[in-house]
Design a protein around this nucleic acid. Structure first.
Lengths: 235, 235
DNA sequence: CGAGGCGTTGAATGGCCTCAACGATGGTGG
DNA sequence: CCACCATCGTTGAGGCCATTCAACGCCTCG
C-alpha cells in the first residue's frame, strides 16, 4: 500500500535558509546571519509525490522536517490494522520533532499532495537551539501547536454524528485555505480522519452536494457554503 | 457545575524541591544544588478536592503545575456545550505548559480525586531553563509525552465500537496502575473520554461484569481480566 | 479493451442514542 | 432519627443512524 522512496530519489537540492521564502514563518525565523554560519551539515530539500512515505512509525530518525508546500498526513495504526489519521501537516509546519529526543517516529508520514520539504539534521537543530533562545522558544511553540491540533481533532472531528464532523472539518479547511474553495481528500482518508467508514463519508458528502452546502468544481475541488455549514452546527 | 476554589483555600504549604519525593521523575530532576538557589519565588503546594477546578480554558495563567498525587482531567467544550475529556494528568505529570508561551490555558483542569500539586511560576521555570539545558530537554519531553497521549486517545479511545474503546481504556488503566485492580470513573466521565453516552458506558460496564471481564470490588474499584480483555480486542 | 481503483448508491442489520423510569446512595434539614 | 431530595448507576423500549455487504458506473492506466 505504502510507497517507499529512497532519500536519493526524492532529493531535489540543498537549501539556502537565509534566502528561504518561508523565512518569516519558518522554524529558523529568529536566527541571525551569524547563526547560519554554524550550520555545517547541508540542509537537503526533497520532493514527495502523493502516496509516498516520508518516514515510518517505529523507525529511529535523525532528521526533522519543515513542509515548504503541499501536505502530509500522520497516520497511526491499531494492532488490528485499523488506521487513523491523527493530524495533517501543512506548509510552514514542522514534523518529526520526536527525533530531537532520540525517539522513534510515532506515525507514518505520507504525502497527500506533491510536497516539498526541508530536512533538518537533528544535530544542527540541537546545536543552534543550545545557543539561540529564540529557536528554543520556536521549538516549544511548534510542539504546542501540534498539541492544540491534536486536541481539536479529538473534540471537533471525533465527536458527534458524521454530518457534524464533516461540517466541522470543512469549516477548518475553509479557515486554513483563506477562501471558500477547498481541496477535499479521498473518501478513505476522510473516513480515517473522522472515524467513520468510507461509505458514510461518501454518502454525507453527496448529501451536502444535493443540499447545496457543497458545490463541486471538479477534481475534488469544492466550494463550501460557510454560513449554512455553521447553521447546521448550532442547532 | 464546576467548583471554583480560591488559591488561598487550596494552599497547603511551600515546597522544598530539593527534598521532593518525586525528585527523580519530576520536572526538576536534572537540577543541581546551585540551581535551587536561583529560585526566588516560593513554590506553592496546593490540594484539590474532587470536582474542584485548577484552571479554566481561555484564562491567561502564569503558573504551570506538577501533580504530586491524585489525578486531573483536561476538558474541552464545543460551542454547543458538548464536552470531551482529552487527557488525564497523573502523578509526576506536568500540565499548564501553555503558560510558558504566554498563551491562555486550553482546557478546564478538574480534579478527579484528592490531588496534590506544585505550582511553578513561569518566571522561575523560564529563568532555570535558560541556564540549564537538562531542564530544557525535560520540558520538551513533557510536551512530547502529552502529544503521544493525545494521539493515543484518538487512535485507541475514539476508534471502533464502544465495547472496544472501553476495553482499551481498561487495559491502559491496568498498565498505568501496575496491578489488575483499577479505580474506575463515573459513567459520565467515561462517556466524555470515549465519545459515547453515559448510558452506553453504563450498559457496557454492566455487561463486562456479567461476562466476568470485570469484578466489582466496591467503591468503583474493579479487578480486570486482562487476558480476556485482550482477546476481545484481537478478534 | 480489460483490469483495477475510486466514488456512489441500495438494502438490511445492528449498535448506539434518546427518552424515560426506577432503585440505591448520601447529604440535608426538620 | 428519619423523611426528603439530589445525584448516580442501571435498565427498558423505540427509533435513528452508521455499518456491513454488495453492486454498479466512471475513470485511468497498462
Amino acid at each position: 500500500m505504502s510507497i517507499r522512496v529512497t532519500f536519493k530519489e526524492a532529493w531535489s537540492g540543498e537549501a539556502d535558509c537565509k534566502l528561504c521564502t518561508l523565512r518569516e514563518s519558518a522554524l529558523f525565523a529568529g536566527l541571525e546571519e551569524s547563526d547560519f554560519e554554524q550550520i555545517h551539515q547541508p540542509i537537503d530539500q526533497i520532493l514527495l509525490q502523493p502516496g509516498q512515505t516520508l518516514y515510518q512509525a517505529g523507525v529511529m530518525g535523525d532528521r526533522l522536517f519543515t513542509v515548504r508546500s503541499g501536505m502530509l498526513k500522520l497516520v497511526q495504526y491499531l494492532p488490528d490494522g485499523a488506521q487513523r489519521i491523527v493530524r495533517l501537516v501543512k506548509a510552514a509546519d514542522v514534523t518529526g520533532l520526536e527525533a530531537l529526543l532520540k525517539q522513534a517516529y510515532e506515525h507514518d508520514a505520507v504525502a497527500m499532495q506533491p510536497t516539498e520539504l526541508c530536512c533538518l539534521p537533528v544535530a544542527t537543530v540541537k546545536a543552534l537551539s543550545g545557543r539561540n533562545p529564540e529557536l528554543h522558544i520556536e521549538l516549544l511553540k511548534r510542539w504546542h501547536r501540534a498539541l492544540s491540533e491534536a486536541d481539536a481533532w479529538l473534540t471537533e472531528l471525533s465527536t458527534g454524528p458524521a454530518r457534524e464532523r464533516i461540517a466541522r472539518l470543512l469549516l477548518r479547511l475553509v479557515r486554513d485555505s483563506g477562501g471558500p474553495e477547498v481541496l477535499l481528500f479521498g473518501r478513505e482518508d476522510l473516513g480515517a480522519m473522522l472515524g467513520i467508514t468510507t461509505e458514510t463519508a461518501s454518502r454525507t458528502i453527496a448529501e451536502f452536494k444535493r443540499q447545496g452546502l457543497l458545490d463541486e468544481l471538479g477534481g475534488n475541488h469544492y466550494r463550501a457554503d460557510v454560513d449554512q455549514l455553521k447553521r447546521l452546527l448550532d442547532e
